[in-house]
Design a protein around this nucleic acid. Structure first.
Length: 589
RNA sequence: CGGGGCGUAGCUCAGCUUGGUAGAGCGCUCGGUUUGGGACCGAGAGGCCGCAGGUUCGAAUCCUGUCGCCCCGACCA
């Protein structure tokens, strides 16, 4: 049976909803696919559900092909498992918590590692049962601080999450690659461009982690890639450290007056004017060593100052800093912090002074000092002399100062060399649409999932987790498949195969359209039929463009002569087709 | 959590400065005329002007408080 627009539960909006900014959000609401219920929470209308189900179907097929079995857990879960793994606390305000009538704690699951692990523990106890990969397609709940952009970052969202269970590391690698391969097939089938980037393993404690990023201006992640094939999230980017240089023969450091140079730009200016380099090459920002005071707040609430030294031509990337110092949180040091450390001369901080080391755990201040990998042994720098209006020139790392360690907090710039030697990187924005992750034994350890191996020895299971954002994918597809008139779905996720518009003034057009619809249905097409009798053609065309079914058949002025128009929504091209040839023409597309 | 903006009809908005009993367009209903690019005429339905308190003879409008929403940032397997 065709779906008739006279009966379909939908109302298209002529104007853009005021609260929608990005194209996908705007169009999905305007075209009647979703309606907002609360911030980041949406109701699904028939059209929206159809698209969602088609995406799910593709995922299910590829999961089955990868040997994963579907299960289903509740979204509402008790506190205990999350308490055991520590995530009840770790998630903080990030999850929805609730109490039952007995005051027992529950949560709406943000992800399901714990209960998957426990279920396998319940049922399996032998290596013979492994490997196992199970998955579900479930709504997840996260109390995002700021939901935004409609389906792209909601507080309720649908995700396919799979979990693999192995008893050897080699087995985990196989399971991981199997899911990773499945993801590539899924995204290819969905027509979604993607980059696989190294991700920060972070607090999840796993070893190998890769994100699938869809390059898009609305993406929230910045990633880098090189022509030679390197790709990484900026948070996971590692700097290519220079080989140590010999320090022998380098000129001794000299201190110069550099009045009024609190910024790198002013310092470079004064250095070139008053203290030009002997070989006349101009000083540049990259010749300076900038020392930035950060304040860490550790999990136990302890506040610690740490100073990071980075080349003066780049800033601190706070996201990279968060990763570098995790699980502590990071912020810029405040005036109060400086007040507690009179040894720090704001604007003129440096590791060295005539009286000895100033920065570092064993220095006069005792403040931990970590530097960018570019500050390698034998490199020379202009940096603060710890006196108002004075800098030290030709300060050599490894000779004149030693840091407590290196740190990856400097911002990554276009053209930086990829760590694998595959050339300079470019920066791009991306939206995370999938994430594959080797969890290792963290959850199995915490929850006691062990099996007996071939030798009758109890071994802890090693796990992987693999997520795909179903509703986010739908938004991403909408985001990259639209024009000023509306959505344009790829054929394999379109809510219908073909949209038939009856555009005529008399009854015969409708009778012919009914016949066309019946033929298309008989040929196996899922048909949306605009049979609204009193609606003008202009409105019908406009709605057809808004709704975004990629193929439209217009039954109109030439219908009496046995011809209809086949309208390619994407190209806008319309071609006359004889009605009896129509099913074959569609089948051939 | 910091910054900015906004709450008036289903949607998009005007009215608020200068207080006087609620408006437009679109959508919806009925009748009629239209019918290949969002047509027209006529008649309608629809609002606790976010909520609470205050000022006033009288508050959508002024004052105080509060709740909510959107955007930017922080945050975010």
């Amino acid at each position: 049976m065709p779906t008739r627009l006279t009966h379909l539960f939908v109302r298209t909006l002529r104007e853009d909803p005021v609260d929608a900014e990005v194209a996908s959000h705007r169009l999905l609401v305007r075209a009647g696919y979703i309606r907002r219920q609360a911030p980041g929470i949406f109701a699904w209308l028939p059209l929206g559900l159809r698209v969602r189900r088609r995406i799910e179907a593709i995922i299910r097929e590829e999961m089955a092909a990868a040997g994963a079995q579907e299960v289903h857990f509740p979204a509402l879960l008790p506190r205990e498992p999350y308490e055991t793994t520590g995530r009840w606390e770790e998630y903080g305000d990030g999850i929805f918590r609730l109490k039952d009538r007995k005051e027992a704690d529950y949560l709406l699951a943000p992800t399901h590692e714990e209960v998957f692990t426990l279920l396998v523990k319940d049922l399996y106890s032998s290596y013979k049962d492994l490997p196992l990969t199970i998955y579900q397609i479930q709504d997840k709940y996260r109390d995002e601080a700021r939901p935004r952009a409609g389906l792209l970052r909601g507080r309720e969202f649908s995700m396919k999450d799979a979990y693999s269970f192995d008893y050897t590391d080699a087995g985990l690698d196989v399971s991981y690659m199997s899911q990773r391969d499945a993801y590539e097939r899924i995204f290819r089938r969905l027509g979604l461009d993607y980059a696989i980037v190294k991700a920060d393993a972070g607090a999840m404690g796993g070893s190998r982690s890769e994100e699938f990023l869809h390059p898009t201006a609305v993406g929230e992640d910045t990633f880098v890639r090189s022509a030679g094939g390197y790709a990484a999230n900026v948070e996971a980017f590692t700097t290519l450290a220079p080989e140590p240089l010999p320090v022998d023969g380098l000129a001794p450091a000299t201190v110069h007056d550099t009045p009024d140079t609190p910024t790198i730009a002013s310092l470079v200016q004064v250095a070139n004017d008053a203290h030009p380099r002997p070989d006349a090459r101009p000083w540049v920002a990259g010749d300076t060593l900038k020392n930035i005071v950060l304040a860490l707040t550790h999990l136990d609430g302890r506040r610690e100052l740490v100073i990071v030294g980075i080349p003066g031509d780049r800033g601190v990337d706070m996201k990279r800093a968060e990763v570098a110092f995790a699980p502590a949180s990071v912020e810029a040091a405040t005036e109060a912090d400086f007040a507690r450390h009179p040894g720090l001369v704001k604007g003129y901080i440096g590791p060295w002074s005539a009286a000895g080391a100033v920065l570092g755990e064993s220095s006069s201040t005792g403040i931990r000092y970590v530097v960018d990998p570019r500050i390698g042994s034998g490199t020379e720098w202009i940096t603060g002399a710890n006196e108002e209006g004075r800098h030290v020139f030709g300060l050599v790392a490894g000779r004149d100062f030693v840091a407590d360690g290196t740190v990856e907090v400097a911002e990554v710039l276009e053209g930086d060399p990829a760590p694998d030697g595959s050339g300079p990187v470019e920066l791009a924005r991306g939206m995370e649409i999938g994430h594959v992750f080797q969890l290792g034994r963290k959850y199995a350890e915490a929850l006691g999932l062990k099996v007996l191996d071939e030798n009758g020895k109890l071994v802890t299971v090693t796990m992987g987790s693999y997520g795909i954002g179903v509703t986010r994918i739908m938004a991403v597809i909408a985001e990259s498949n639209n024009d000023e008139r509306g959505l344009i779905w790829p054929r394999n996720v379109s809510p219908f195969d073909v949209h038939v518009v009856a555009a005529g003034r008399d009854d015969s057009v409708y009778a012919i359209a009914e016949d066309v619809v019946a033929q298309l249905e008989a040929a196996g097409n899922d048909v949306l039929f605009d049979d609204r009798p009193k609606v003008s053609p202009g409105v019908k065309f406009g709605d057809a463009e808004l709704l975004g079914v990629p193929l439209v058949v217009v039954v109109g002025r030439d219908a009496a002569e046995g011809r209809v128009e086949l309208w390619d929504r994407r190209s806008g091209e319309k071609t006359a087709v004889a009605i009896q040839e129509l099913p074959a023409r569609l089948a051939a597309l």
